[in-house]
Write a protein that binds this DNA or RNA. Sequence first.
DNA 1: GCAAATAGCGCAAAGGTTTGCACAAAGGTT
DNA 2: AACCTTTGTGCAAACCTTTGCGCTATTTGC
Lengths: 341, 341
Amino acid sequence: MVKRHVSLKDLAVELGVSVSTVSRALKNHPDISHQLTDKIQKIAIERNYTPNPLAMGLLKAQTKMIGVIIPDIVTHFFASVISGIESVAKEKGYFIVISSSNESFEKEKESVDNLLKSRVEGIIACISQETNDISHFQRLINNEFPLVFFDRICEVLSVPSVTVNGFEAVKSIIHHFKDNGCKRIAYISGPSHLSISKNRKEGYLEGLNECGLEFNPDLLVECNLSAADASLATKQLLSLDKKPDAIFGINDTIAFAAMKVIKKHGLKIPEDIALVGFTDEFHSTVVEPTLTSVTHPTFLMGREAARLFFNIIEKESTYHEKVILPTELIIRDSSVKRNVL
Amino acid sequence: MVKRHVSLKDLAVELGVSVSTVSRALKNHPDISHQLTDKIQKIAIERNYTPNPLAMGLLKAQTKMIGVIIPDIVTHFFASVISGIESVAKEKGYFIVISSSNESFEKEKESVDNLLKSRVEGIIACISQETNDISHFQRLINNEFPLVFFDRICEVLSVPSVTVNGFEAVKSIIHHFKDNGCKRIAYISGPSHLSISKNRKEGYLEGLNECGLEFNPDLLVECNLSAADASLATKQLLSLDKKPDAIFGINDTIAFAAMKVIKKHGLKIPEDIALVGFTDEFHSTVVEPTLTSVTHPTFLMGREAARLFFNIIEKESTYHEKVILPTELIIRDSSVKRNVL
DNA sequence: GCAAATAGCGCAAAGGTTTGCACAAAGGTT
DNA sequence: AACCTTTGTGCAAACCTTTGCGCTATTTGC
């Protein structure tokens, strides 16, 4: 089987010195003579010694692990955020343990339990769309366990978080629609209890208001963030007597699904219905027409979340920083009605 | 700061018994009286005791961690494989540590080092496209360190692996092209040293052969698996005096990139050029025309890789199982020339 | 009623590392 | 020559858990 890793003891025995001497020599402790230090360091490299993180963890009561809870890993958005988190974790000598909730409340609770059992030093999470009860996170907060939210957050909890300026972004989308002559602007939202849904809805309402458009409840539909459900929502919109002339999907997955349905109905994008998404997935540029969307600094979002995390565990700060990242509306073909311009 | 986790000692002190008694009681050891066992178990639950994995790891010399090296996490394919690996790891009480090589040879070597330092019990890897020198993996094998490859493998190394039947898949693509009247079938390949490139190239050649088509070196171009490079490769193909009437991209990312270029050149898909990809990304159905592609059982691939891994560490088997997963050609609009049918 | 068996619990070591303290030998001071 | 610093090293505890063995009462068998 696998060769055992060499330990300080192995080196100590080989050199006929004590374990503590080896330990000190490897950290250049002044107590150890230069000759002995050199000798020990040389042989340590030769034998390929690396400290055992388990022993260190036990001693220092730290595992150098960060738990990351996400709704779904198989997604450009979350994969990219993870990538961002990992990049700063790596810089700090930490590694991340990923646990997907699969958008399930139960699995999210399990994830928290499992990560706690694994003794991660903290958790960075994006709550599942099912999550309405937040007692499992409240528990962590009560124990002052390091916790950071990103994207979908719990507003009621006083926790560092990083989100995106959805309010402003959606407002600018509405203005963009209006500039293109749209008057009946629909919004396919996510579950209403989700922070991003609320936030973007407010932007939607305010945008309509600023554009002098009246809010029509028929044009605001909810879906559960799945493509299937988004298709249903789109069909519902298209079955209205007065069809919308613009649709904003809360994310690109929703917008892609809507696009398919619209095409299937024989309607033209953007001529009949202008379409805008959110999050700017890689494939926005490959669909036809190319999808207007809001760039979401996903990688940066991950890095910021990790930064907040290390703020907590390093500075032991109790200040709950809320980072709001900017977005940018990338205008492509799906929303530009040429006749208007 | 964070409340310390409660240990056996804490419970022992609280109850005035020894640590060993608590340890045994929690595992229902017959040596401990029923009353005491009950009392201990009750208070353990009350205090929310969970065993410290670090201490266990130290004792048992196992970390319950699997290292996973992938070229890029921000990809449907790899995210999905990871998801598969994680699902069986979770069943076994293991968790995975992900390290991306970013398709870089240097980073891949670093990843191996870091994972080794973290004392993962083994590594599941997909080699980077830059990787030609495999001494860092050879080292692991020499030490009988558990190692499993997936998708892109090292044929020269005797290691369990899980791949996809690229040879057969590509052959069927060529036949499909031929059935649609294509005669000049181009192949945009990946770096030639990669196992998947070689494998699929053989399928390409054999397919041409079976279809009575002659191999034309001009129609076989290589790219580095990036969209940008794929665009270049496509342009090269389109600049030929005798343009191809069909293009097969080694994966969907390549095919998407090719699609954009073809459209930009004012050529019609599939009428002028039929197009087929590989891996069946989620967005295959949303591009226009929808992309014919080969389904790649990514999740299963992850599960199989993990299964092979546990085979090694559990049964200590030295048999190097090579799993080859089946694929299926999903025919969509991008390759079906209506006039022929 | 005495020896032997048994039930029920604690001790200690092991796993790898760090670190305060003790200790030895060497050198320096008066 | 006796004492005090250094200088260099080792001991042992701590982190947490498991487990073989030893110990003490109690119970059993005769």
